[in-house]
Nucleic acid binder design. Structure first.
Lengths: 144, 144
DNA sequence: TATTGTTATACTCTATAACTATA
DNA sequence: TATAGTTATAGAGTATAACAATA
């Protein structure tokens, strides 16, 4: 058969376009204009994985350090994260969520995901399973 | 059980982060700096669906018309698309690929997708099937 | 010297609002 | 009036290069 190479090329093509269109749609689904999707993603990662340095956060989100610096500065200005000196390494900084961020995440994340959650509800359980598995695979691809 | 609402919220969360990280990774995978990923997506859509108006192209790519105007202007400047008057409707414009775009798509798309194709090859056939199905579902979600 | 983070700068992507031309 | 497209403008997101501080 040896159809794999062709299939893979077609999959790469379709997957690329689907992800681009879907991510555009997600970004446009903004309700509150104070916290952007990028900000929310950083906050979510901090909530899930706990306090970490800007560098670690950048690695998690697959962005370059200067890009994360900008995000952290904005979040600090909004009172959503704190920057503390690292206990032993003077070069490093520890970014952590403030209580305000915890509250915001509970409320805002739900509101922002309302559209997506609703759409997901309209899918079949099988389709949701596909997306659940695809999420893990895409994260694996992104981190590789 | 009634676990669906909770599952859906968690899925919305994970899917959002996975798509954001994956799309960042895709954008960063730029090899040639003359044609951007957005440009390539528009060209791909024109190749697959044939000549169409800027408005139709914007709908396909889930962007607003002014955003597509900018892309089309850039592509025309690079000699990759032509803008012709619509035969019957004087308001409309028809965007079509030039021969140069055909050549570029064959070569450049493959080159740009080399990274992704390689990564996809490392997956199991089952994982690729998941991504293939997920692509279709994400397109459905984006267009809904 | 190597690492961590930041500043400076610039480019891509995308949107909304206002305008023009045609239907 | 309504529609298609464009222009003008702005903001979000991200990168590379250069710099400062610490290890």
């Amino acid at each position: 058969m040896s159809r794999t190479p062709l299939d893979t090329a077609a999959l790469a093509h379709d997957l690329r376009l689907a992800v681009m269109r879907f991510s555009r749609r997600l970004r446009n689904q903004r309700v509150d204009h104070s916290v952007t999707l990028t900000h929310l993603a950083a906050l979510s990662t901090l909530k899930r994985h706990g306090a970490m340095s800007p560098g670690e956060l950048a690695t998690h989100e697959r962005v370059q350090p200067p890009s994360m610096t900008r995000v952290v500065v904005a979040l600090e200005g909004m009172g959503l994260v704190t920057r503390s000196p690292h206990p032993t390494d003077g070069r490093q900084v520890v970014i952590d969520l403030t209580p305000a961020a915890g509250e915001l995440l509970d409320a805002e994340a739900q509101a922002r995901e309302a559209w997506l959650s609703e759409r997901l509800h309209e899918l079949t359980p099988e389709e949701r399973t596909v997306l659940r598995e695809a999420s893990a695979i895409m994260d694996k691809l992104a981190s590789g």
